Amino acid sequence: MIHQRALEYLLGLQGAALLRSFTEESDPGFGRARVAEMRRLLDRAELDVEPVAVERVSAVDGYRVWSRTYDEPGNGLFPPEEETVHGILGGLPPGTAVDAACGTGRHSEWLAGQGHRVIGVDGSADMLARARERVPSGEFHEAPLERLPIPDAHADIVVCSLALTHVRDLGPVFAEFARVLRPGGHLVVSDVSHELAAIGSVPRARIDGERPALLVDHRHRASDYLGAAVPAGLRVVSCAEPRMSPPVPLDTPAELPDALETGPWDQWPWSLISLTPEVCRAVTGDMPVLIIWHFRRDPDR
């Protein structure tokens, strides 16, 4: 069980800002202001509450709930992810495209619009139901990423978007991607950066409409992706890391507001970040929000 308290998150942001200022130029009062603000946070009685007990659930269980709202506007990761993915794949000749972990068919819809024959695979029946409605021309299967129901060397393109953070061992997944790709075929993988996940950006849901839960989350580094992809016969074409925002100077931020409305657990950490926006910018300035890989299958393998 995970235990989350608003107070501890806010103190953690202050501490992260202090760590950055320890090795970077900053306003002379920045460090003292952070320490003083931490003392004020500790004195706020409305923050001295019992932690929220949060369970860890599988992606299938989590997306069963999240599928109802997944396509609603407001997910800040979609625009930069789509811009990069579309830039890589736009202009390729129509062929067979596999949307692995297709979810509600966000990329399947775009690929079909580019003239590709789309095959979507996902482990969530609830997400697939929405994908089938969204892309009537697509072919969709319920299956895990480690066992794609697709013949060898069948696809010109494989896309896997914002899903591998839920996978512990990347080796079998990349081996499957390589297996279904034709020699010279393109693989594009996007994922949430491990740095963004470390500050709390992990999908959350209420199981049975009540129990707080975080989806299973594995924080892969670049070496994890490369260690799985290269032995499978996939070579790197490019790697992009869209950023949160430009770097910001470490100036002394404004003091805490008089009223601290932390918002419901469902809105954490974003409602908490809004209480100390300058400190958040100090922590997240220039932080990668995504990592997006473009691989091609070795034509000689």
Rank of each mutant, 00 (worst) to 15 (best):
I2P: 01
H3D: 09
A6T: 05
E8W: 02
Y9L: 04
L10W: 07
L10Q: 07
L11T: 13
G12W: 09
L19W: 03
R20M: 05
F22Q: 05
T23Q: 02
T23F: 11
E24G: 00
D27L: 12
G29H: 14
G29L: 08
G31F: 04
R34G: 04
V35Y: 12
L41F: 15
R44A: 13
P51M: 05
P51V: 11
V52R: 02
A53C: 08
V54I: 15
E55Q: 10
V57F: 09
V60W: 09
D61P: 00
W66F: 03
S67Y: 00
T69H: 00
Y70C: 02
E72P: 03
N75I: 04
L77T: 02
L77A: 06
P79T: 05
E82K: 06
T84W: 12
V85E: 12
H86K: 08
I88G: 14
L89V: 11
L92N: 13
L92Y: 12
P93H: 10
G95M: 08
C102E: 08
C102A: 14
G103R: 04
G105P: 10
H107W: 10
S108F: 00
A112M: 01
G113Q: 04
Q114S: 07
H116E: 05
R117N: 07
V118I: 08
V118P: 06
V118F: 12
G120L: 09
G123Y: 07
M127T: 06
L128Y: 10
A129K: 09
A129L: 06
A131P: 09
R132Q: 14
E133F: 06
R134M: 02
P136V: 10
S137I: 04
E139W: 13
F140R: 07
F140M: 10
H141W: 15
E142T: 01
L145I: 11
P149L: 00
P149W: 00
I150W: 00
H154R: 14
H154A: 15
I157F: 04
V158I: 10
V159G: 00
C160M: 01
S161I: 08
L162G: 00
L162K: 06
L162N: 07
V167S: 11
R168K: 10
A175N: 10
E176T: 08
E176Y: 02
F177C: 08
R179D: 01
R182F: 03
G184D: 12
D191K: 05
D191V: 09
S193T: 15
A197D: 11
A198F: 05
P203M: 09
E210W: 04
V216L: 11
R221M: 10
S223M: 10
Y225W: 03
A228Y: 01
V230L: 12
P231S: 15
G233F: 10
G233K: 08
R235S: 13
V237A: 12
E241C: 02
P242Y: 11
P242F: 02
P247D: 15
P247V: 13
P249W: 12
P253D: 08
E255H: 13
L256E: 07
P257F: 09
T262W: 04
T262E: 13
S271Y: 05
I273F: 07
P277I: 15
V279E: 07
V279R: 07
C280F: 12
A282N: 05
V283K: 01
D286M: 06
D286I: 05
M287Q: 11
P288T: 01
V289D: 04
I291W: 11
I292K: 04
W293V: 14
F295A: 11
